[in-house]
Simulated scan of single mutants.
Amino acid sequence: MSMNKRMDGKVVIVVGATRGIGAATSRRLAQEGAVVILGGISVERGQAFAEELNDSGGRAEFRLADLSNGDSLLDLMNGVAHDHGRIDGLFNNGADLHLLDRDGDILSTDPEIFARSLTTNLTGYFLSCRAAIPHMLKTGGGAIVQTSSLAASRGDSAMVGYCASKAGVDALTRHVAVRFGKQKIRCNAIQPGMIMVENAVAMGDALPLELILKQTAGPRLGEPEDIASAATFLLSDDAAFINGQIIRVDGGMSIPLLSNSIAQS
C-alpha cells in the first residue's frame, strides 16, 4: 500500500528526532513526502538516521538542536530558513527523562532539578517556537505540534518538575494558537498515554505495566507510531481547522473507568 503524500515538499523540523516518538514521527513525515530536518544532540546517531531515511526514499538531514541551549535552536531555525527558504512545520518533542529519578514531591526535589526540568521541557519549547515563528510569518503560516503529557492535567504525588513543565507546554500551545492564529499559524499539543519507547521498555520491570493496561480502555499500550500518526495529521493541511487543542492519544487511558459491578448496577 502506497503512503499518502499529504506532506509532499513541506519543510518540517523535528526537535528531538532520533529516538522514540521523534524518530517514529520523522520516519512517518519522510514517508509522506516532507523534507525532514532531524534536530538532536547526537551527531553520530542523527547522521545515521538521516542516511537511513534517505536510503528509504525520503529526504532528511540532521542538524544540531539542544532544547537546553537557546542559541542552538536559533541557529537551527535560521539555518533551515536560509537553506530551504521556509519552515512549514515544527514538532517540539523532548524531555529530560534522566531527571525523573530525582524529581519527587515539592519537599524532596532540589530546586535545581525543578529548574532544569523547566529549562528543557518548557523553556526549550518556548525558544524553539520563538525562533521558528518569524520565519513562518514571512511565508504565510505554518503548523506547530508539541509533545505534552497526561501529567500536565492529572495529579501526581511525584514528578513535580515534569508535571509543571508539561502543564506549561499546554499553556504555551494555547498562547501561540491565539496570538498567531489569524496569521495562519496553528499550534496544537499531544498528550501521549503509556508509550512503549526505549526507556519504558527498559523500565518494564519497574513500571506497573499490567496495572496501567488494566486501567486503559483499549486492548494494548501505545507505540511511538501511534503518536507519529497523530503528529503528522496535525502538521498536515488535513488539520487546517484544528488550532490550540490539547489532544490525548492514549488508547483511553485517561477515561475514568467504572468497575463492571458499578457500571451494571
Score class of each variant (00 low, 15 high):
Leu150Asn: 07
Asn92Thr: 09
Gly124Ile: 03
Gly94His: 10
Thr147Leu: 11
Asp101Gln: 14
Gly89Gln: 02
Leu99Asp: 02
Gln146Trp: 02
Thr120Ala: 06
Thr139Glu: 09
Phe91Arg: 07
Thr147Asp: 03
Asn121Val: 01
Cys163Arg: 13
Ala143Phe: 12
Thr147Pro: 01
Asp156Asn: 15
Tyr162Met: 06
Phe91Gln: 03
Phe126His: 14
Gly89Asn: 04
Ala115Pro: 04
Ala158Leu: 12
Leu137Arg: 09
Leu99Ser: 01
Ala143Ser: 15
Leu137Ala: 04
Val169Gln: 00
Gly89Val: 04
Phe126Ile: 12
Ser117Tyr: 00
Ala167Ser: 15
Ala164His: 10
Thr123Lys: 12
Leu122Met: 10
Cys163Asn: 14
Ala95Glu: 02
Gly141Glu: 01
Ala158Tyr: 07
Thr109Asn: 01
Gly104Ser: 12
Thr119Met: 09
Met136Tyr: 03
Ala164Ser: 14
Ile87Ser: 01
Asp96Arg: 11
Pro134His: 09
Thr123His: 11
Leu137Gly: 03
Asp170Tyr: 00
Gly94Asn: 09
Ser128Arg: 10
Ser148Ala: 15
Asp156His: 15
Leu107Tyr: 03
Ala132Asn: 03
Arg116Asn: 05
Phe114Lys: 08
Ser157Gly: 13
Ser165Cys: 12
Lys138Ser: 12
Ser149Glu: 08
Thr109Asp: 01
Leu150Met: 13
Ala158Lys: 01
Leu99Ile: 06
Leu107Met: 07
Gly85Ala: 00
Thr109Leu: 08
Thr120Gln: 08
Leu90Ile: 14
Val160Pro: 09
Asp103Lys: 07
Ala151Trp: 08
Ala171Val: 11
Arg154Tyr: 15
Ser153Asn: 09
Asp103Pro: 09
Gly155Val: 13
Ser149Cys: 12
Leu118Gln: 11
Tyr125Trp: 00
Leu100Asn: 13
Gly141Lys: 04
Val145Lys: 04
Asp110Asn: 15
Pro134Val: 07
Leu99Tyr: 00
Pro134Asn: 09
Asp88Thr: 10
Phe114Gly: 04
Gly155Glu: 05
Asn93Cys: 02
Thr109Met: 00
Ile113Thr: 15
Ser117Thr: 10
Arg116Ile: 02
Asn121Leu: 01
Pro111Cys: 05
Gly168Thr: 13
Glu112Lys: 11
Ser153Leu: 08
Asp156Tyr: 14
Gly168Ile: 12
Ile144Cys: 05
Ala171Lys: 12
Asp101Leu: 04
Tyr125Ser: 03
Thr147Met: 08
Ile106Cys: 07
Gln146Val: 05
Leu137Ser: 06
Gly141Phe: 02
Cys163Phe: 02
Glu112Phe: 04
Gly155Asp: 08
His135Tyr: 15
Ser108Asp: 11
Thr119Tyr: 01
Ala131Asn: 11
Leu127Val: 11
Ala151Asn: 15
Asp110Pro: 10
Thr120Pro: 06
Ser157Lys: 14
Lys138His: 05
Asp96Ala: 12
Ser157Cys: 11
Gly168Trp: 10
Cys163Trp: 03
Ser128Trp: 01
Ala151Lys: 09
Ala171Asn: 14
Asp170Lys: 13
Arg130Cys: 01
Thr109Gly: 02
Asp156Met: 14
Leu127Cys: 07
Arg102Ala: 05
Ser148Phe: 04
Phe126Asn: 00
Met159Glu: 11
Val160Gln: 08
Cys163Ser: 14
Leu100His: 10
Thr147Glu: 05
Ala131Phe: 09
Ser117Trp: 00
Pro134Cys: 04
Ser153Pro: 01
Pro111Leu: 04
Arg102Lys: 14
His135Thr: 12
Thr119Ile: 04
Ala151Arg: 11
